[in-house]
Amino acid sequence: MTLLAVERIKLFTTRSPWWCMLLALFLTIGLTAVIAANWNNAPMPVLGAVYTHTFGLYVIMVMAALAVTTEYRFGTIKATFLAVPDRVSPLIAKAVVVALLAGLVGEAVGFGSWAASWLLADDNSQLALTTANDWRHVAGVGLVYAAGAVLALGVGALVRQTAGAVSIVLVFALVLESVVGLIPNIGDDIQKWMPFTVASKFIFGDPDASGMPDGAGPPVVGELSPWGSFGYFAAISLAVFIISLVVVKKRDA
């Protein structure tokens, strides 16, 4: 497991991961705090506390993409491949380290946002984590971040350029997935299978009815159960990452 230590050293001896992690925490918990402080006509539901997690997800995916594209930018990927010529094992080690870190940040985001809501909301009677679904809404953020990080890492390894990888990830998640819904007739059917849409069903799906007015909360679409949704998102992330491994192995470094 020396390679895990190598990737850990690489990640933590540069500054961008620290900034990305801080930004992810600040954006999500900060925004949630503002939302919670202004939530005053009804008890705040658990879903309200994690609504902002997507902002952090994008930042964490940028961090994951950077973890590999900066290696291409500065040539350290070649130094890595000289040190470990099989190429696949260092990339897997990188994925493990980045996914673990993203998962930890995700848990901090989930529970941090939840705690901020608990402290700031006028009525926090509905915020207690009593059911499995409540726990999934909050703790699930870590899993989505981890899977999203693996996806972004795969895109980064395929594209090799920071600008390209970051644009692909962000344009896909922020623009393409919503624009697809505008296609007549088939748009909705395509949209509900788009990875980030499905991933949000894992966080937001099947909330406990108590305290939720009908139709309230973020829109949730998808054919799969919440856990099925996560499986689908994780499978896509893993598929992209495995494709990137095959390409990196074959390509001239």
């Binding site: 020396t2 390679l3 230590a5 190598v6 050293i9 690489k10 001896t13 540069t14 500054r15 900066t70 290696e71 500065f74 040539g75 350290t76 070649k78 130094a79 890595t80 040190a83 470990v84 260092p90």
Partner: peptide
């Protein structure tokens, strides 16, 4: 120039050494 500019010289050699 195959070195991350924000990494110290020592950290650069450290990860290389650790990998082997």
């Amino acid at each position: 120039k195959w070195v991350h500019p924000n990494r110290s010289a020592r950290a650069h050699l450290q990860w290389l050494a650790r990998s082997n």
